[in-house]
Design a protein around this nucleic acid. Structure first.
Lengths: 226, 226
DNA sequence: GCAATCTAAATTGTCGACAAATATTTTGAC
DNA sequence: GTCAAAATATTTGTCGACAATTTAGATTGC
């Protein structure tokens, strides 16, 4: 009977809390609303055409996701990662992404990954050499979705989504660094090869190594990146 | 200058959102509010002496933590774990607790853990043999706090706290099963021994083995437990 | 007696108004 | 002109009221 809640639907219809949340989440993750940016309840309530109460409820949720910080009586600012927090994120991502890859490899038949093996093949390398970092990031996102689907663990998937929201721009800046994208591509080819052979343990090990590499890369260039 | 927010403070003062959240979180985690229990906004607003708007904001947050489920126009019920969700929780806990123990062992000097080695020594075994499961759970909680402190990763700490909220009662029921507490005690003694020797890798391995054991135990007795 | 339908009560969803706190501007003294 | 204090404006925090929806109960018809 209840049929709304799936689509943003008809223009002019008031956005649900979930829809507002989705928009803000995405804007913050992409630094459309950059770190340190102040968010005013009245401005957002006007922008979305809803009352402040709804904005407030959304604030509660995205604060819980560490995307914003609320200072009592002083409002909301978009979270700015400290270097320590960034390292912490890498450490947690390492084990969770590793887990996801292991589970996905265990759950799915090896042929599942064939198209991804091809997606990360020679043409991709050409793209990276020519500086198409957007395309590379795109491929990484697709890979991640396929993996979280295959892992078949909704809790894990939501945790990884949250970590991605917090690190998306950081990773984007890492990928632009000279040689990093090429290195990452090679590593992901190895990871996919292991998955293609059904070797879950090896795939997990390689993914963790990959993230430790990214972490190390971040450590070296953190002044440039944060 | 801002000095509130630390204490619940004077009786009669209105509870902040954070305080209400804390109370509800704890009640749900302990099954004081059992799974499937319906939460009415008006009842809670009266109970805490605040308006429904605040309760609503709290709902947004604890929904984000998967402690409740909101059904549009029909209200809020305390989440009831499905077996699949419970297994998912074990899988995520395994890698995160393993990570926490590895980091804690790496960060802190080995002597740090001496008092815990003693806490899980002979007297504890006597307690478990005599059926003092409360005491054992208490010791586990202390160990967990010491580890999350030592790991020095606030993100990881908050993730583990959330997982604990979702599995506390489940673990309590596991511990009561014949032999499980004794087995867990032995395993934790081994873990602590590795930590006491500064062997982070081994401590992580043992902790993960420990959680896999708990998972397997849950698998066998899940009909009894959920 | 039972099912379907209608009515009333309870509950959730939304909003605008007011109070409290903070930020900004104006004013005035030196 | 500069600084401090007061006045004003903006922003957050809180609440109770009203609308929409669902639930429970009463009524009717078979």
């Amino acid at each position: 009977m209840v049929k709304r809640s799936v689509k943003t639907a008809v223009r002019g219809e008031k956005p649900q809390v979930d829809e507002i949340l989705e928009v803000l989440r995405e804007k913050i993750a992409n630094h459309d609303l950059p770190p340190g940016c102040k968010l005013r309840e009245s401005a957002l309530s006007e922008e979305f055409g809803v009352s402040r109460a709804r904005i407030r409820e959304v604030f509660g949720v995205i604060e819980e996701r560490s995307l914003i910080e609320r200072i009592p009586n002083r409002g909301v600012v978009v979270t700015r990662l400290t270097p320590a927090q960034a390292f912490d994120l890498f450490d947690v991502r390492e084990v969770l992404e590793g887990l996801a890859i292991r589970l996905a490899t265990q759950n799915m038949p090896p042929e599942t990954w064939q198209d991804l093996v091809e997606m990360f093949g020679e043409p991709a390398e050409k793209g990276v050499r020519e500086g198409d970092f957007e395309g590379y990031m795109e491929k990484l996102a697709i890979l991640r979705h396929r993996i979280t689907n295959g892992a078949d663990n909704p809790l894990l998937a939501s945790q990884l989504d949250r970590l991605d929201d917090q690190t998306r721009v950081l990773v984007k800046r890492l990928v632009i660094l000279p040689g990093r994208a090429a290195e990452g591509l090679v590593e992901h080819r190895q990871i996919l090869a292991a998955m293609r052979h059904g070797d879950a343990e090896e795939a997990e090990r390689l993914k963790r190594e990959n993230i430790r590499g990214a972490r190390e890369c971040f450590r070296r260039y953190q002044k440039l990146i944060l």
